[in-house]
Design a protein around this nucleic acid. Structure first.
Lengths: 189, 189, 189, 189
DNA sequence: AATGAATGAGTCTTCATTCAT
DNA sequence: AATGAATGAAGACTCATTCAT
């Protein structure tokens, strides 16, 4: 039973994320989401009290997942260069793998989350960003970086997020290739 | 008289761009725009037939402006490095200067433009992007780039556009500094 | 339950037909219709997607009813004169009886139905008109008619429809009387 | 000058009538009319104070014309049969000739004229209808009619008006033929 | 939990009319 | 007379949310 409940919530959030990504949050209707999971519009409100709650849940879930994945990935690294590669690589995987929709939503639908909820997410986001800043700081200390860490992270957020708009994981360039290219822009070669 | 008409159109588009940027296109109402320029909502349709037309005009205008600015800037350069610096610098100026709102809208509200209108803008956008690709190709031939030109441009679109979300031109880092940092990620030092 | 749904739809269409007849389709607002059945304007769209759909439903329903009634009436006739009398009489009953509003709308609001929907109704209308043409052709073969069948039907459409604007079924002239008078204009006495 | 003024008014009313007939009064916008005569929407109000005034003028003019034409036509008749033929023939000419649009508007847009204006037109209409009733009464006295005069006129209004929806003056049936057919329905043969 | 009818505020758009130039 | 920008009320339609069943 608990399993079923979890499944349904997960399916619902996955469909919602997909729609939010495709059409944007404001253009996605509660009816769209409901019918994507085989419900009537009214029934959705037994699972989430408001549309805003759905957006929040999508973001909250994905940030937890990527933070965990990132910790796992970093745990297997040793050198600063390996760490930065893992940071880039793991974020790319999140953006082009299973959590693609939710990751995209996290970045590009941010403004549509209510301010109160933004604050909550920011706490989690800061934890995640701390992993990045730590990794980049180590690379900086090792004299590897090309730009000051804080600025570098901002530039990387932009270039990595934007790949969702052009990079095709099934195309000629592999995700590893892409990670390597981005690494080249971030660190001295 | 002609001046007045031009002014009014320009003011209207500027206010619309500002609102689209702040709230997003779907969340910006026609009333918002009208009242921002001191009109009743119905009067707006004397100037633009649909809300979509306004978005289109914002984008069309700004792409014309940035293309012209870019041509001017490139005309004053000689070496490949100078050219890439000009590309970055001019795009940053557009994003943080007078056309900030419209530039941001061009990038981040793209999806909300009707497909028919997207096609029209894409023609103009391709002309603009050709300037970039030419410049980067020259740098590549000179052995300066860190990444293949096409990929590099995509990464730069992301990092440069994203600066709108964090860079403050009145802060400690100047726009020239920022341009130089981005140049460092793009070219060998 | 199904009964309720049917009732509600029927009531809604009846009220809509009444309003369309009284004020014409363009002058009838969706709010008029909604409040006539005790709904808010937005709730109407739970039942019909567009105002045009309502007009269509009114017409589709009434043409089905009159076709059925006509078949019943014709089934009880034998001679050509009886058939023509039944055609006139039944159409008059539709125009002045329970389906008065819808019949009038079918004739006089025709132009306001969307072209696509007009095509759909025309299929049904042709089936109905075939009953008339068959009946009149038989009368013609019996040497009873005063005018060629096709023309005669056109003239009768006009005179019969127009009765809605002047004939009062509760007045001194009965509907049977009226039918007889029209019969006199159509056939040799 | 006076000529010009008259011309402009006449052209304007002709275009308005054409539009009212084609699209119906409510669906015809003041802009439609203005642009049909090469004016801007605001300029129309130098000629007519309201849209209702235009409809009124169309109707008033055409009823004056047809009354005059009818008087002329009747003046040339002698026998009752000739008179009824002239009544039918002249009304058909009005409906399919130069004043077709205005005549159609008079009949089918009647409901959209403001009640106050309807009263004014009714006075003129009664004068016109008196010609019909007189003519039919004479035919009745001569034992020619098939139906009581008042009823007969009503039936004829319907069938004659309706010809606008199906009769093509350039088709195989001439207007004289049509008039003769209608005469056959109205009088004993 | 699910339904689906209902709500009601809100959206874009239309349009007859006004009025300064 | 003509213009055309502006008005503002009204129109069809949308949609997150509620609630009785």
């Amino acid at each position: 039973m608990t399993q079923h409940v979890k499944d349904r919530r997960a399916v619902l959030l996955a469909e919602a994320a997909s729609l939010f990504r495709k059409k944007g949050f404001p253009r996605t209707t509660v009816r769209d989401i409901a019918s994507a999971v085989g419900l009537q519009s009214g029934s959705l409100f037994h699972h989430f009290a408001t549309k805003d709650d759905i957006l929040f849940a999508v973001m909250e879930d994905v940030i937890a997942v990527i933070t965990e994945n990132m910790l796992d990935a970093l745990a297997e690294t040793e050198t600063p260069r390996q760490k930065v590669r893992a940071l880039i690589r793991t974020e790319l995987e999140a953006i082009h793998g299973a959590s693609r929709d939710a990751m995209t939503v996290l970045v590009f639908e941010w403004r549509h989350l209510s301010p109160a909820r933004q604050k909550e997410i920011l706490v989690l986001r800061d934890q995640y960003e701390a992993l990045w800043l730590t990794g980049l700081a180590q690379a900086a200390q090792a004299g590897l970086t090309v730009v000051e860490s804080f600025t570098l992270r901002r530039l990387l957020v932009g270039s990595i997020s934007w790949t969702v708009n052009w990079f095709d994981p099934d195309g000629p360039m592999s995700l590893d290739d892409l990670a390597e290219q981005i690494l080249n822009t971030a660190l001295k070669t």
